[in-house]
Amino acid sequence: MRDTILLCGGFELDRNGASALRALSIAKLYERIGYRVVVLGKFDTAPGTRANGGHERLLQGVTCRDIRQPCPGRTPRFYPVSAEAIDDVARTTGTHRVRAIQFYNYPARGLVAGLHLCRRIGAAPILDCTEWPRWEGRRFRRNLYRRAGIETRMRALTRVAGNVICASDWFRGRLPRQHTIRLPFVLDTARPEWMKAPLPTRFDAPARFIYSGSPGVGMAKDRLPLIIDALDSLASENLAFQCDILGITRDEYLRDAPQHRRAIERLAGEVRFHGRVSHATSLDMLRRADFSVFFRKPDRVAHTGFATKFVEAHTLGIPVVTNATSDIPRYLTDGKNGFLAPGIAPDQIAGALRDAVTLSPTGRQEMRRVCLAQNAFEMDLWQRDASRFLDGLRGLA
Rank of each mutant, 00 (worst) to 15 (best):
E136R: 13
L381E: 03
R208C: 13
G351I: 09
F185W: 06
R99C: 02
P200M: 12
R368I: 12
C129K: 04
M285E: 09
F310H: 02
T281S: 15
R174E: 01
F203Y: 14
E193Q: 13
E84F: 02
G61F: 08
A161F: 08
R109L: 15
R50G: 12
G392S: 04
R65S: 01
M1E: 15
I344R: 04
R288M: 13
I328H: 07
G122I: 12
D128F: 08
M154F: 08
I5C: 02
L267F: 13
V321P: 01
P70M: 02
W170H: 13
L226E: 15
L353T: 12
T304F: 03
A46Q: 09
Q383C: 08
G41I: 05
E252K: 05
L6A: 06
S212F: 08
N375H: 07
G173N: 04
G110M: 12
T322K: 09
I318P: 08
I86G: 00
S236W: 11
P70Q: 04
R99H: 09
E312C: 08
E265V: 10
G317N: 08
L187D: 04
V89E: 00
I210N: 12
E151W: 15
V293K: 02
G41K: 01
G363T: 10
A356N: 11
F291C: 09
A345S: 07
S19N: 08
T75A: 15
F185H: 01
Q69H: 08
G275M: 03
Y253S: 03
L340N: 05
D284H: 14
K309Y: 10
M1Y: 13
W132I: 00
Q242P: 04
S168R: 03
A386Y: 00
L353F: 11
D334N: 11
G122A: 05
L127E: 02
L390D: 00
D188Q: 04
G247K: 10
G218V: 10
V98Y: 02
A156L: 12
I5L: 03
G335I: 02
R134F: 02
P361N: 14
A350Q: 14
E270V: 13
D385T: 06
A356E: 07
G53V: 12
R57Y: 05
D284C: 13
F209W: 07
P176Q: 07
R208M: 14
N52M: 04
V37G: 05
R276P: 00
L359F: 05
A46C: 05
A313P: 03
D66F: 06
G149F: 09
A356C: 13
N143G: 12
R276L: 15
F209A: 05
V277K: 13
V301E: 12
T249C: 03
G269S: 10
S19R: 06
E136Q: 11
I181V: 08
W382L: 00
L187V: 06
L117Y: 00
R202F: 15
I101R: 03
I33R: 06
T304C: 07
V320Y: 04
G363Q: 10
Y106E: 00
I101M: 01
A205G: 14
R388A: 13
D88P: 03
S292I: 02
G395I: 07
R109Y: 05
A235G: 14
Y253F: 02
T322E: 06
R119Y: 08
L286G: 09
R182M: 11
F306I: 01
Y106R: 03
Q259G: 14
S25G: 09
G343V: 01
S360N: 10
S236H: 15
A235C: 13
F306W: 11
T95K: 07
D244G: 12
